[in-house]
């Protein structure tokens, strides 16, 4: 195990170094997202004000506020794009250099990303999560702060991050097959945002669609941890959503292995 850590530590530090180099970039990105979160906040405020009910689809306004900012924070916590360059590396052949090293290909990306994630989350956790906690403590009508829910949230968010990581690895490995058709992740990202509940809580969708979306892996990426934090689930529901998350994690780990197995045979390194 120590040997394993030694072997991958350089990638963690390389990731950290890179994150520091690009921190201005990241802060701008975070600022943009924060603005987005506030826009969403005012939108919902208007919706709630124009409504005669004090709660919509089971959400009170303070719960909605928490949902908005928490799903924004969770999005950052669980985001994964460590493998986003696989397509480029396949195209220019530089992926060969990763393949020629006696390290696990997936672990390589994972540790690179962990490095930069430590920095990103470190920078944002204090102001954002601090803000969420303060709002919860001083705000009126907010759900009570609950240590159990907090722990469930962090466990579930960690699993969500891992699902997201392996999901993106699977997605990026398809670059091996579609070398020239490779465009962008825009469509994928839009779908994920919609289906994971980061735009609108899944509870607002029609029941049929809701039931489908709740079983699909996307709800495991964001909706599940946020709802756990808000204490929206009964004991039984909690167990079943966590089991579903773990199922999807195992599913994507295996899928990644299988795709890799076939992808590597398809690789044709150009140049040199």
């Amino acid at each position: 195990m120590t040997n394993f850590l030694r072997k991958y530590r350089p990638f963690v530090s390389a990731g950290i170094e890179e994150a520091i180099v690009y921190r201005a970039n990241f802060l701008l990105f975070a600022l943009g997202n924060t603005l987005g979160a506030f826009v969403t906040y005012f939108l919902w405020k208007a919706v709630f004000q124009s409504s005669t009910n004090s709660s919509l689809s089971g959400f009170t306004f303070p719960e909605m506020v928490l949902y908005i900012f928490l799903s924004f924070f969770t999005g950052i916590l669980t985001s994964s794009d460590g493998s986003s360059s696989v397509g480029d590396e396949v195209k220019d052949g530089s992926i060969a250099m990763r393949i020629l090293k006696p390290i696990s290909f997936t672990a390589n990306y994972f540790y690179e990303e962990i490095g930069s994630k430590l920095i990103d989350v470190g920078v944002l956790a204090v102001p954002l999560f601090g803000g969420i906690l303060i709002y919860q403590i001083v705000g009126t009508g907010t759900p009570v702060l609950n240590l159990g829910n907090l722990l469930l949230y962090f466990f579930s968010a960690t699993v969500a991050y891992l699902i997201n990581f392996y999901f993106n690895i699977c997605f990026s490995f398809t670059a091996f097959f579609f070398r020239n058709l490779w465009g962008s992740n825009v469509l994928k990202n839009a779908l994920v945002i919609f289906m994971s509940g980061s735009l609108v809580p899944l509870a607002f969708f029609p029941p049929v669609l809701q039931n489908v979306l709740k079983v699909l892996p996307f709800s495991s990426l964001l909706y599940t941890p946020v709802m756990l934090y808000l204490g929206k689930y009964s004991m039984q529901q909690t167990i079943s959503v966590l089991l579903l998350q773990i199922f999807w994690l195992i599913f994507f780990i295996f899928l990644a292995k299988i795709i890799w197995h076939f992808a590597i045979k398809h690789l044709s390194i150009q140049g040199g």
Binding site: A96, M97, I99, P102
Partner: peptide
């Protein structure tokens, strides 16, 4: 793969295996 590449060294004249920024 992982086991095999432990015992080989490779140089491609036209591309580097070094980390560009380090």
């Amino acid at each position: 793969r992982q086991n095999y590449v432990k015992d080989i060294g490779v140089v491609f004249g036209q591309r580097t295996q070094l980390w560009w920024d380090l």
